[in-house]
Write a protein that binds this DNA or RNA. Sequence first.
DNA 1: GAGCTACGTTTTTTT
DNA 2: AACGTAGCTC
Length: 721
Amino acid sequence: MDVSYILDQLNDAQRDAVTADSPGTLVLAGAGSGKTRVLVHRIAWKIKVEGLSPYSIMAVTFTNKAAREMRGRIEELLGSSLQGGMWVGTFHGLAHRLLKAHAREAGLPENFQILDSDDQLRLMKRIHRELQLDDSRWPPRQSCYFINGHKDEGRRSAHIDDPGGDLYLQTMLKVYRRYEEICQQQGVIDFAELLLRALELWRDNPAVLAHYQQRFKHVLVDEFQDTNAVQYAWLRILAGNGMPITAVGDDDQSIYGWRGARIENIQQFSKDFADTRIIRLEQNYRSTGTILSAANAVIKNNSQRLGKELWTSGEDGEPITLFAAFNEQDEARFVTDRIDELLRQDYRRADIGILYRSNAQSRVLEEALIRSGQPYRIYGGQRFYDRLEIKNALAYLRLIALRDDDTAMERVINTPTRGIGNRTVEMLREYARDHQLSLWQSAMAMIQNGALTARAGNALRGFLSLVEDLAEQCSDQSLDEQVDLVIDKAGLIAFHQKEKGEKGQARIENLQELVSAARSFTPEDPDADLLREFLDQAALDAGEQQADEHEDSIQLMTLHSAKGLEFPIVFMVGVEENLFPHKMSMDDPARLEEERRLAYVGITRAEQQLFLSYAESRRLHGQENFNSLSRFIREIPNDLINEVRINNTVTRPSSFASGNIAAQAAADCGIALGQRVLHSFFGAGTVLSFEGQGASARVQVNFEDEGSKWLVLQYANLELL
DNA sequence: GAGCTACGTTTTTTT
DNA sequence: AACGTAGCTC
């Protein structure tokens, strides 16, 4: 059998990583070194050469996107479909699959539901109300953090030491206990619980564990640096006894410490898995020499590193451009102006990525892109399935699937408003608590025994029969017809039609989008209950931004969601102290290093050209902020950077920083920043900045009538005003 | 009980 | 700036 196609076109280190037959294999893969490729080819190697069945392979990733991509590329390489045989998925997805198969052993009801972060927060608010905690002193969100943090470390409330006189811990513990109680009673589990239960399932049920230890002959883990304590323990319990395991990761790209990821796991790996072979992939196929030098220069300021230096056999390429903007508007204009230029060259919009630290920054950029008529696509941000209107529709579906789902019931009992007010709901809650019933059961009971006023009782009865009727009508319908039925008959469409502005229209469109998502939904397990599968997927998967995926558009996203992606052109905006590094992370050295890794991730997304920008004044949360250039950018050697400034004080003296030279050239013509000038064709304007050197020195002028333009200084014939 | 207004709070990153 | 909550009026 000819298997050369698996190894052709790989470099030595990659080939090593693909064929290694050590029990443990740790691949330290730098950015752009062909990490996914190695994983995919290694799996193909296991199947085609070593003869493993896809059924006996488990491959774990962190995002659904990565899982999909891996599956697709394996199938492409093998030329056949994997179908359901191989376990490819996220930690959360696989844990969920496991718990569904062994619900009873895991101590869960067969029809347990997933509680997403929004549901979790709502539940927490309810608990705080019940425990009579003042929300301003005890923010519900903080309780969520507390609980999730402990769960990520594998600690349940019972594992936490007696807090003694510590009021904070006492309170948190009380909340944690009550939270566990309610979740168990309602049969719902949050994200962290998914992982923890899966771990406990294997730990406490040797027979179940043995089954999987027999089944799997090889485990592969992507983005290993992002595993948290529970995920690591889960892998260890499965593969710690000699099952071959391959971990691929990059300690320099660990950016999820804030949600429990433990970079130490990567160092721990060779201790816990016997005979581990470590293979480094350091040749980068993505970026120019200049970009790599910058990335290396930044990351070398971190202390805790396994050590790795990227190199390329390619060209140095263009210098990095750094733009100092007046404010965030000016910054956005810089980005769109450059994009216009790039598109006039041979670039497509999809070649351009705009990366920012926090989602709040996207607005200004979006507005500027709309103004300049550029289609764009935002990754991440609010997930499709997290939108209010979608969650409402899903809540109805959940009630249809399971009447006792209190979270769903709370959500839509009075949405759209139907005369069931706070008072009534409060009585329901009380009754449910006293009688250990679900809200649904309590509602039925209270109607029965006439504990409600006629008005409230009628309204409540109306709601119950609405849901029952819907369930009835849905029973023999296809999934998309069910969704369609629900959003129509529950009055959600009408509800949003009444909303003023364009918002309601957008929401209706999203609801229709949900119908088509249901139409094209294909369950992993064709025998399972379709509606439930759909609801599960909605909780675990962000829901791909379906809008115009194939249109050529500019890509906007946070630095976090950019990990794993690459673009010929990258704009990293808002490289300012307090924003990046974020001010929440500046006091803690460990978190500061994580921010630096984030900078490293951002820089290494760029293939050919990298544009950095910062604003001297930035309006954020309605307040003006004055920040200086990010320390991370100051760590990049000056000779890699072409600096464009808006005022005369060039604070980065460098023999190569051509901002100086351009300014010098301009000064020779008598032009200074802020200078009013007159152009024979464009009219009057103000000089904004300079760039380039010698004959290509250019000047940016903001014309009163024409907007801002770049002009080659030599030919512009500007008249001073 | 619904709906409006005023006020206060909050803002990192996400499976 | 945007959202959520509290309190007020109908």
